[in-house]
Design a protein around this nucleic acid. Structure first.
Lengths: 242, 242
DNA sequence: TCCGCCCTCACTATTTTTGGGGAGTTGTTT
DNA sequence: AAACAACTCCCCAAAAATAGTGAGGGCGGA
């Protein structure tokens, strides 16, 4: 029997999101969204490159526990597939061919995750990575209809969700950044581009000695112990764009 | 006199975007959007980790030429400010205090860019970075009204624009974007933290020789010419977080 | 089964970077 | 006027990174 997908007022969804004042509220919003959009599950899943993760959604606690315990982050085709993508992804299109992936999929379905899914990848400045996912149990055709009907609102919801969720996520160290001088920025930039000092000095049309002064003063300002460290700090503070 | 902001049907905007079949179409769409939303300019600006950039929008050719020629990418407070942010940004909130920034701002305004702006940062899997900007010349209060009225649709448009624009952007050599192995990631991370090879090897409890193998293979995978370059690339691709 | 990737360890010689010094000019800010 | 920051140049010795090789075991996919 064909699924009767709802058409929903996105603005009211977004308003609900904006009202959220804590993680519990987000959880409530996501439960409501599931009902409104008539899907089995929605999940917001945030991962940083250290492998720390945080989630919020309607998957069963069993599945979440199993996922964490088994470190499925490393094999989940949704995570891996979205990691290199810009676009929202229908699970059908992902690579489920590996043995690991097939095992994972079977287990996920057993835990009620659903055989169909739609995940929107989002990214932050320092490699942070979040997914907003809707999943459901239905036929390909039905899911196709869902897709056509709800893709746009879901993308919008996903991005508002990300922004809201950020307010509640563990705060990053605020960059207590003293600025670098223009020449120091140039120097750091060229080094980050892989130039050695000779080439960077040549490019900047100064002597290598002078370049070294910039590198050292930048290193000092950034509290870095060597060039690589200085470049890394300059990058993570957004002082240079490479 | 108070600005009379339009209220626009986002779906028709998105439909126009989806119909776009080339860069010229995107340009046409962006011109239409300006008219519909009653703002002076809209711009889509894309930057990759090499510093290559690509833009599409309504700024005057003079300003674009000047921007490129002067390499304003490196000092534009909008670029720098958005680079570390998750959220859309009102230009007023950025740091315009440096002399460079003030000069830049004055020049931008002279070129008709406008004194108010709203930029939505977006990111791709490998450190790609795009901005969708609306700018205008008006009072703070008027811009505040614009913001409240059009923030949501603009965010949605921005993300659809990004996706559409990707189809037409000069396809960058996906630099063998293979991922690093866990040990390689560890190695890159410790180096980015300022450890020298001896200390990093010690921390990883392997010999320095082995560590060197990781560094070299990471460097190779990342297409980097030296350690600093490799760390910079690993960071800008979000492979490591420091 | 074989191939490729990951992990581990080793040697030698050369090039590059770093850590100490010091010195002079131009600006802006106080 | 004096202080400060930025920009430019120089020397030397020690430490670190790189380039070119090499080897063997394990694990998973084609």
């Amino acid at each position: 029997m064909a699924q009767n997908w709802h058409t929903v007022d996105v603005d009211s969804n977004l308003a609900a999101l904006e009202r959220a004042a804590g993680l519990e509220d987000l959880q409530a919003v996501i439960v409501d969204l599931c009902e409104e959009y008539y899907v089995d599950h929605m999940v917001y899943h945030w991962v940083n490159s250290q492998g720390d993760q945080y989630g919020c959604g309607t998957y069963s606690p069993d599945w979440v526990a199993r996922y964490l315990e088994q470190d499925y982050l490393r094999i989940d085709p949704v995570i891996l597939g979205c990691y290199q993508r810009f676009h929202p992804v229908y699970w059908k299109r992902l690579d489920w061919s590996s043995k690991q992936a097939r095992v994972f999929r079977r287990e996920a379905i057993e835990h009620g995750v659903g055989n169909q899914g739609f995940s929107i990848p989002m990214r932050g400045p320092n490699g942070q990575y979040a997914l907003f996912t809707a999943s459901h149990s239905c036929s390909d055709d039905e899911w196709q209809v869902f897709k056509n009907q709800n893709r746009r609102p879901l993308i919008l919801i996903a991005h508002f969700f990300k922004q809201k969720a950020l307010e509640f996520e563990p705060e990053r160290v605020p960059p207590a950044s003293r600025t670098l001088s223009p020449r120091e920025i140039d120097a750091m930039t060229f080094l980050a581009m892989g130039f050695n000092r000779a080439k960077a000095a040549d490019t900047m049309e100064i002597s290598e000695h002078t370049l070294r002064v910039y590198i050292e003063s930048a290193r000092f300002k950034l509290g870095a112990v060597n060039t690589t460290h200085a470049v890394a700090r300059a990058m993570s503070r957004g002082l240079i764009v490479v």
